[in-house]
Computed example of a mutant assay.
Amino acid sequence: MSATVFTNHVKTLGLLPVSREEMASLNGPDFKQYIKIFYLPTGFKLRVDFSVYHTVQPTLFFISPNQYLEIEEVGLENGYFIYYNRDFYCIQIHDQEVACDGLLFNNIRNMPNVEVSDEEITYLNYLFKEMIQEFKLGDSSLEEMVRTYLKQLLIRATRSWKRQHLAGTITDQPSDLEFFRQFTRLVEAHYKSKHTVADYADLLCMAPKTITHKFNRLRLPQPNEVIKNRIILEAKRLLVHTALTAKEIAYELGYDDPAYFSRLFMAKTGESPSSFRANFFR
């Protein structure tokens, strides 16, 4: 498959093969800024932030621009890679569930993957072939057609993600599902400045206890843990991928007392920020 890309002013969407020949390019900085979707057959190994995934069956991965990604091993069959920016597709009002801040990206479960059933494999192979054909045609309707295919992929993947990762806890409760998404988006937007459940209760116009009760009913981790886990994840990224000191990272994440931040990091990870950095590169 040849490289295919649509670009028009500020909008970009590209489709590439995932193969051994493309590994260096895909792991490089060229695609960091984009929202990314990988469709990988069996035999692939990739690292997303600090988790390693092996594909034992075809799997979709959804990667946000702020996440670290590295493909470490490729399978015998090539995969597909879609990359696009928010200007190409990120509908905040109408398609919230499948938008770039929907369930598939930056979710509370921190699970960026969806295993694909046999039925979905057939559909996805058809979808990617249709997208490639659209690029070959180069028709004036290319942008709308490939956006339509992208939306179909996101909708079907979101349905599968809910079945696989929510285990039926809230999929039949639309209001709770919307709360789940809303809390996720707020944490992602404000974790550097808002560190307590009370902070998010103010944003949601509800009592902190109400949030806790909702999380208990949905069998999710406690909301305070969700907030702290997001902060610690960013701290780990900064420790590994930047030269910032622990004190500078504390300030970056909104903590005026670096010692307090170090204690929090120790409590959540079992090691100090400096030890975490040293051990990662050992």
Rank of each mutant, 00 (worst) to 15 (best):
N125I: 04
T196Q: 08
L127Q: 01
F61C: 06
V10W: 08
R159K: 07
D49I: 01
P112W: 00
F261I: 07
A243Y: 13
I232T: 10
K162W: 01
H9S: 13
V187Q: 08
P65Q: 05
L253S: 08
E120N: 08
R156H: 12
S117L: 11
L264M: 15
L203M: 15
V10Q: 13
N125D: 15
R159S: 12
H165V: 04
T245H: 05
S19I: 01
R147L: 05
I170C: 10
F38P: 03
F261Y: 07
C205R: 14
T269G: 01
Q182M: 12
A201P: 03
T148Q: 06
S25C: 10
N106P: 13
G102A: 04
Y260E: 13
C100K: 08
F215N: 04
A189C: 07
L26C: 05
A250N: 06
I121W: 00
F50I: 00
I232V: 13
R217H: 11
E70D: 12
L154C: 00
T242C: 12
K214H: 13
D95N: 05
N8H: 12
A235F: 05
S275V: 03
L103D: 01
K247D: 15
V18E: 01
R185P: 00
F38A: 02
P174R: 02
E188H: 13
L253M: 07
E248N: 14
S64D: 14
G43T: 04
F265G: 01
F265K: 01
D118S: 14
P112D: 03
Q67H: 10
F61A: 12
F281S: 00
R219L: 12
L218D: 05
L13D: 08
I35Q: 09
S193V: 15
I37Y: 05
M266Q: 11
F50N: 05
I232Y: 14
R217G: 14
L15N: 05
L13N: 03
T184K: 08
V18C: 05
E72T: 10
P58L: 03
L220D: 03
T169M: 15
E120A: 14
L60V: 05
E70R: 02
G254H: 12
A198M: 06
K228Y: 13
E72G: 07
E73D: 09
T148I: 03
S262L: 02
D172S: 09
Q133I: 06
Y200V: 05
F135N: 03
D101H: 13
Y149E: 14
F135D: 02
D257P: 10
